[in-house]
Nucleic acid binder design. Sequence first.
RNA 1: GCGCCAGUAGCUCAGUCGGAUAGAGCAGCAGCCUUCUAAGCUGCGGGUCGGGGGUUCGAAUCCCUUCUGGCGUGCCA
Length: 550
Amino acid sequence: MIKHIIHDQVAQVLTSLGLSQQREFIVEVPNNPDNGEFSTNAAMVLAKENKTSPKKLAEALLKELKKNKYYKSVEIAGPGFINFRLSTSLFQHMLWDVYKLGLDFGNSDFGQQEKVLLEFVSANPTGPLNIVSARAAAYGDTLYRVMKKVGFDPAREFYINDAGNQVDILAESLELRLRELHGENIGEFPYEAYHGEYVKHLAHKLNAAEGVRVFMMPEKERNERLKEFALSELLEMQRLSLERFDVTFEGWVSERTLRGEGVVEEVLSYLTEADCTYEKEDAVWFASTKFGDDKDRVLMKSDGSITYFVPDLAYHLTKIQRGFTKLIDVFGPDHHGYVPRLKAAFRALNYDEDMLEIVFLQQVNLYESGEKVKMSKRAGKIVTMDDLINVVGKDAARYFFIARKANAHLNFDLELALQKNNDNPVYYCQYAHARICSIIRKAKKDRIYPRAFKQELCLKLTKPDELALIRKLTELPGLLETIAEYREPHRLATYTEELCGLYHRFYNKYQVVSLKSRELSKARLLLSEAVKNALAICLDLMGISAPEKM
RNA sequence: GCGCCAGUAGCUCAGUCGGAUAGAGCAGCAGCCUUCUAAGCUGCGGGUCGGGGGUUCGAAUCCCUUCUGGCGUGCCA
């Protein structure tokens, strides 16, 4: 907010002086407060193209900038930085602006209603959702919320991989468990089959509903029935887990349905028309190496069946057909080898490959008693998303996942999160919100809380800690835009902690509600309200509750 | 072998896309509740930003190289 204002003013001055500004300069907050509250490198960056020295350029700018009443001081320092100190009245004005906006604070049209499709989780419907899916859910959903707030037109979608090999294996696993249930000796449970307990539960449920009728069906029909049943049950299970995590999707797209609609054949024909397929060893290949992949990929196997890639590509093309101009896929760590062929296909079909953007979430390591927990879906040893929510709660789980940048490994210490009085930073933030609510309750009880706040109250706020809080507040709108642009929701967690830290400090230093000075109390209440709103916004964007009491 | 990601304080991680003296939380030590929530605050100690080279006014950030760890490299999905 403030950065923008300063940036615009510097740009205006440059224009009015008839100076070139080809290269981009920035306004930033210096590490060292001695260097002012804000600083710009404009003179250094633009000196060369204006055929002058940084110092001279800075001096020219300085003369004009000093005329602005919002700057307490403007100075030249070091190799040509221009450092700004802002007047207290600017902060006071900004606070009022922030306060008036309430929960709309931070809203903008930055995204210009661009239609963005966020695809995430998209887990195989062959078992409960795991921890990585939980991370994807937290990441994707928060990004969605932030993008929506800053004026994009985003949609969340879950692609259901319900048509591949793994579904057949699932059906077989279920059949074995069902036979077992009927006392049949099934021998050793196959290695590739799904070993999880949930398959047994499914068998029980199916048995209760249909008994031996399933076994009387012809094999093909039985197989369909088993698939049908397992898929719908597991999908529902996944949907419920996500719902508990406060994550919903605008769309659920089934691979089977897609195949049924004939889009697979369509895509194959497109690729053939683009002259980038060939037959070899009874299989149909995509010559993806022509388009940047490191090896060619099979589209149709020698047995006539189709690989996963084709319907997935078809799915991506439907996104474009539906009018989305940005496709963001959130992938797990084991899929990065898959990207070159997707991009290659876009290139082959003359789509702009930049429309497709892949975010990789690195793996999540669970630690218990200081040891890494090994997880394997096939072997049935998995810690599920539900387990995690049960243990640490939705708020803490979401926070942990969001607080780390996507492409870094995440170590999740279960024991630490297990401790109820833990050092979990999510409590730090929620506590700040609850604390403000408590103060407001107190003020209302003491009849200090005004019916309506007046702008003049802002003039009472002059302490450095108060101004620091206001400045932090003003950073939020720009931050949200940055988060949306760079797809980095983790910054929201960092920001929230910083804002809370400032408020906790302010709280410890100054009494907000004091009968001795009612006007100052009201002013601090106004500030507290603004902080509370900002916190509520941040927590809501992260999908974390903002408690009024703790 | 090749490709992708990571390497910052004892631990977990930030670092506003090239800025000035690299930050936070936890852990450790020492303090702060007869006043609005102590799930909080204050102070102290702690660093070869994995190593080496380069680019420039200026590098944790960009380039090259090298080491370490994770993942990928299926006619699996």
